[in-house]
Nucleic acid binder design. Structure first.
Lengths: 197, 197
DNA sequence: TGCGTAAGCGGAACACTGTTCCGTATAGTC
DNA sequence: GACTATACGGAACAGTGTTCCGCTTACGCA
């Protein structure tokens, strides 16, 4: 999960973390979740540290890269989204499961201000974030795509990584994106998977 | 074209511009084109002004918003892309013309580092840029879509603005975007337009 | 319980970047 | 050549990411 030696309590439960450090990390996570929701994942560090009541040095100590903080804040929700794939696969026909999961995925990105843009920014502060998302979402999407292809409902030649990237991008909205834009575009991609010459 | 009272020589030929001012603007356009190509449209102003041999105040005087500079640098190429639509419409069947133009559009964005991201950034420095692009590309795309729909080759219910936005976003590439990613995704959108239940 | 020391702290300092503004320079007209 | 409007450059300023060092806190051990 975290790709740097930080937030050690989560990555290595055997490692001792002092009580004050744990308090700082908890405060930062709470504050960051609020600030991300209101100002986006690229909000200034001072906004987060002020809300958390800790110093900026403390933030960097526990979360050396912004992607470490972003990953920590969204981890549970991301896991829940990825884990929804097999559940949907059991409840619905392959095509329906795929469609519903993509809708879930799109909703995940849509409610995280600036997350999709951050993933595509190439900014070194988000260096490890794409890998993190890919590691959880690509297997989920891959299995749904395989099932739908095996059922003869879609073509079998789309790369799950590419489709994931496309959904993330379309979820950014945009200067003209009205209500339902991303949903319509993702649906169009799905229809493209169904189309055969 | 320019949405602010700058680069007056182009917007209002009657207005006198001093020779030194014209030299400054020319130098800035030349430098910006180079810097945008190597560092992207969000390169620091100091990089552009240093290359142009002018002061930063001079850059803001002639191009108050970054979007003014971006629009000026890419104007000819953007016009040429938009003007290619009717030409392709004459030479090819509607579906083929649409496909080729989207490929042309995608290539336009792909060769402009950071342009697509800038369009979607919401940054006030790029405030007028989306409108500029929309004003030239939406009519072009709209007529191609109409022709293909009239020929019964695609559904008639896609909004050209939305499709334009989607192509721009997919042209951003991304952390996993390999060779031809954007082309494949745009093709998938096109296939989606052809698909009917 | 007290001591020693490692872990952790906060925020000033620093570098980078966007933007403004003012004293000086240049261009154009008469 | 003189006058004046236009244009100049870059220092100053504010915002932001990041580092680092003197000080503080927590924990383990005797």
């Amino acid at each position: 999960m975290p790709t740097t030696e930080s937030a050690a309590v989560d990555a290595c439960p055997d490692k001792r973390v002092r009580a004050d450090a744990q308090r700082s990390m908890d405060a930062l996570l709470t504050a960051a979740a609020e600030v991300f929701a209101s100002s986006g994942v690229d909000a200034p560090v001072r906004e987060i540290t002020a809300k958390a009541g800790v110093g900026t040095g403390t933030l960097y100590r526990h979360y050396p890269l912004r992607s470490d903080l972003v990953a920590a804040v969204f981890r549970h929700e991301l896991d829940a989204c990825a884990d929804a794939a097999p559940v949907l696969a059991e409840q619905y026909e392959p095509m329906e499961a795929l469609s519903r999961w993509l809708e879930r995925l799109q909703g995940f990105f849509a409610t995280k201000r600036g997350l999709s843009a951050a993933l595509h920014s190439g900014d070194s502060a988000y260096e490890h974030l794409p890998d993190y998302f890919r590691s959880r979402f690509v297997p989920a999407l891959g299995s749904l795509l395989d099932a739908a292809a095996a059922a003869g409902e879609i073509r079998a030649d789309v790369d799950p990584q590419e489709l994931l990237n496309a959904v993330a991008q379309l979820s950014m909205g945009g200067p003209i994106a009205g209500e339902g834009y991303a949903t319509r575009m993702v649906q169009l991609l799905l229809n493209g998977l169904r189309y055969s010459d």
